[in-house]
Design a protein around this nucleic acid. Structure first.
Lengths: 376, 376
DNA sequence: GAGATCTATTGGAACGTTCCAAAATAGTCA
DNA sequence: TGACTATTTTGGAACGTTCCAATAGATCTC
């Protein structure tokens, strides 16, 4: 059934030319005569030839047109969207991507990176699993394969990175809650030992102290960065003697869980308790109440990371570049700020029970992109 | 910087053996002497050798250890989980996967399949974009590459398929709502022209007619199969003169949107209106109220599809096999059935306003797997 | 009409593996 | 010792591409 592959030689034979000429046609070289080109293309169609990139990649000058993408949790829509953004850019650039999910397992991560390396990727974008070390990228960078780290930084790694401005975003979100009159603001979800969580918590603390509020450690409740974790976190937060009236959540998944948990105890998010998320996944817009959140634009971030990688692949230069993408606070209903009325059935009244100056409406970009160069 | 690649010949030289011996060591052949093996392995570590699979794949007997995975919408958590399931199995089997998102674009799909083919995939799993035709797989199957179609069937394609029993699932879900006393049950979301939607609607109609209820066409409201689509669908459904009291939703995303829309007009899902979803994505469990849904187990389905593909790759025989996976109804809170009390704060009372016999509690598997063989 | 200058085309040697046939080495037995 | 096995090892020819250097043919220039 599976007859032996059709190769350039077969095409050459059928078209009455040499294999070199066929190769030139395949590369759309201007050197070849139009009639010859037509003949060759006809033969290609006729015989059902498929280009064998593996063979072409053997010549050491060639680039494989394959990149690797490694993410730590594809079931989290933030990372799924990140991957989709990368996919868009890579497809358009004629690249095809290996994608692997590590599920936060360092071992799996090591394995898939090794495997991708054997298959000859010409670049890698990775959202590293917790506990990833700079040494994990060493073999890759040593052989000149550019690496872009996204979302989570890896200390000491001489690779490019694209992170978001977690500190500024968290600070802006917290300031917003303060401007709405909240004085007891919790920080819910996430693990304290991760860099991302640390940065967001720092922004949260900065805003509190700038407003002269003291950072009560009991208001910080760690949990898994998931919807279920959010439910657990708000439950624990409500046990505190002096209850919080609002919360900045580690990410949107946690924020949704917090909303679920509030409802389960008869509290309506937005009206009885201010909730702010982080990431701005698609569902944040359509949820009821719509989630006030810090927009990181995961798809855009994915696209941008892909562009960074492509630039490095094409330039041949491996120059590590650290970019911190700006984020913006998107004010919707869940924080309790007064915004446009909601048009589904009865009019939504976003008024809070704290009766303060109305907060910002719409969105607000925080900080600007910072970029710094570094020799690899 | 990027010195020329280290090859088997370099290893052979360093270890004082021939390249053939190195090759045998790489393949863990029992033919080679233990001491020699040790020497070679030492040299491999020493020189930082990386196996070049591309070169190995040139020999026509070899299999590439690469599979392609094509999904129509990775931002939908159903498909993200499907992909994660496949990833798990493929990683364990030592395969690496190209993953591409088509976003329902037939053109993108054609491009990525062609691209993957050039890179030498040894199998493909695809959740086809709307409008995919049997001819789109022809080039692949003609060259002996096994293809497994998941989730959506492609009429006339001589490839393996793994679908879920949509008809039986929808029927069971509808019967459940009927047993709770509902008489006006809507079918919300999805596009009527897709096979999956058609099957689910068929199950819905069967249950209605079996119960002697007439299928009022105005109770079927199409919309995008997304959360936003669900909001839109319930809004339109509430405009019907004789309002529905419950709804079977095309999928979980729509069901969540329906819950959002209900709340926006002051109705509480589960208490004031019965909502049933389809798919059982992870959030269905933790949402409040927890979503009653037909569990398709996307991760399990992904794993199963991957196993089907691997079996075909390893056997060498391309024998099309059509499997229809059974589904089970998981009764939680959103349908209004009496279940275990909810333990978050005040006790949850799931009683409906329709005061009928209590529905099933727990889950219920519908039908059994059907399998049929077919020559390719 | 002999170079020179283009334009098209073409062998052949890589690239890094595998695998076959063959050879080298060591061990066994009469 | 010589024949025979069993165990290890090894050249060398693929695999399907690219790319360099060389060539052939056409056109132009003096």
């Amino acid at each position: 059934m599976t007859k032996s592959r059709v190769t350039v030689v077969d095409i050459a034979h059928a078209a009455g030319v040499s294999k070199s000429t066929v190769s030139l046609v395949l590369q759309a070289s201007p050197l070849v005569n139009e009639q010859t080109r037509a003949k060759v293309n006809a033969a290609i169609r006729e015989l059902g030839y498929v280009y064998n990139r593996g063979a072409a990649n053997l010549r050491q000058t060639a680039s494989s047109k394959i990149v690797g993408i490694v993410v730590n949790d594809l079931t989290n829509s933030f990372f799924a969207e990140l991957a989709v953004g990368m996919d868009m850019v890579m497809q358009s650039a004629g690249f095809v991507q290996f994608l692997a999910n590590t599920g936060e397992s360092i071992d799996r991560q090591r394995e898939v990176i090794a495997s991708m390396r054997e298959h000859g990727i010409s670049g890698l974008i990775i959202s590293p699993a917790r506990g990833t070390e700079a040494a994990d990228f060493k073999p890759l960078t040593a052989s000149g394969v550019p690496v872009v780290v996204v979302v989570r930084n890896v200390a000491g790694a001489k690779v490019s990175s694209l992170l978001s401005d977690n500190r500024a975003g968290a600070r802006a979100a917290t300031e917003h809650l303060i401007s709405l009159g909240h004085r007891r603001i919790a920080f819910l979800g996430g693990f304290a030992d991760t860099a991302v969580s640390g940065e967001r918590m720092q922004g949260y603390r900065e805003a509190l102290s700038a407003a002269g509020l003291d950072a009560d450690a009991s208001l910080v409740v760690n949990s898994a960065p998931s919807r279920a974790g959010g439910v657990a976190a708000i439950e624990r937060a409500m046990l505190i003697s002096e209850r919080p009236t609002a919360a900045l959540c580690f990410n949107d998944a946690v924020a949704f869980g917090v909303c679920d948990g509030l409802r389960a105890r008869g509290l309506e998010p937005g009206r009885d308790f201010g909730v702010v998320g982080f990431d701005d996944v698609i569902e944040a817009q359509t949820a009821v109440p719509a989630l006030t959140t810090v927009s990181v634009d995961p798809q855009g971030m994915g696209r941008r990371a892909a562009q960074m990688l492509l630039k490095q692949i094409n330039s041949g230069r491996v120059e590590a570049e650290a970019t911190i993408a700006s984020v913006r606070l998107v004010v919707r209903q869940s924080c309790g700020a007064k915004t446009k009325t909601w048009d589904g059935g009865k009019t939504w009244d976003g008024g809070t029970s704290h009766d303060t100056a109305p907060g910002d409406t719409g969105s607000d970009t925080v900080g600007t992109d910072r970029r710094q160069h570094d020799r690899a």
